[in-house]
């Protein structure tokens, strides 16, 4: 017997389109993020970093293993771009990762996370514990809407 096709409502169709769109957007974002975690020209390894937005602050963390504590530097390149650098205690070569078909030496860690919402970069607070760098920026507030 012929099975009757279930009628799809406009909401079903919209939800399917949204799912497809989200999957495509995810793929696109990942393709932008696809790049090596090392740079032989600048002799840098890219550390892992994370950006977290709370109602009050933007918190950026970076995992800086093998970093010299005194060399950790944080610089605001613009209102929404931060440069994090640190010298490594011990230089590493591709050899140290078991890679013999590439040549290069790495002496520092560097990443440039983007800040997604307006913040006050002049009031950033920085801590470095357990090899994890943490930078906290207070969020900018333009105006307050009065509740009547």
């Amino acid at each position: 017997m012929h099975e009757r096709r279930r009628k799809r409502s406009i909401f079903d169709l919209m939800s399917e389109y949204m799912e497809e769109f989200e999957a495509l957007a995810d793929e696109l974002m990942e393709s932008f993020a696809e790049h090596p975690s090392w740079n032989t020209e600048s002799c840098c390894l890219e550390p892992l970093c994370n950006v977290f937005v709370t109602p009050e602050e933007v918190v950026i963390t970076a995992d800086l293993p093998n970093a010299e504590h005194e060399s950790v530097k944080v610089e605001a390149l613009s209102e929404d771009l931060i440069d994090i650098t640190a010298k490594m205690k011990r230089k590493m070569r591709f050899d140290d990762f078991g890679i013999t078909h590439r040549e290069g030496e790495f002496s520092s860690l560097r990443c440039q996370p983007r800040i997604p919402v307006p913040v006050d970069t002049k009031r950033m607070r920085i801590s470095f514990k357990h090899g994890i760098l943490e930078i906290r920026f207070p969020r900018k507030r333009d105006y307050e809407i009065k509740v009547e």
Binding site: S37, L45, L48, D63, N66, G131
Partner: peptide, 14 residues
Amino acid sequence: KGEEIRLKARDIMK
């Protein structure tokens, strides 16, 4: 070996 592992595991973590 903790620090070395953290450096080597960056890509698979990502």
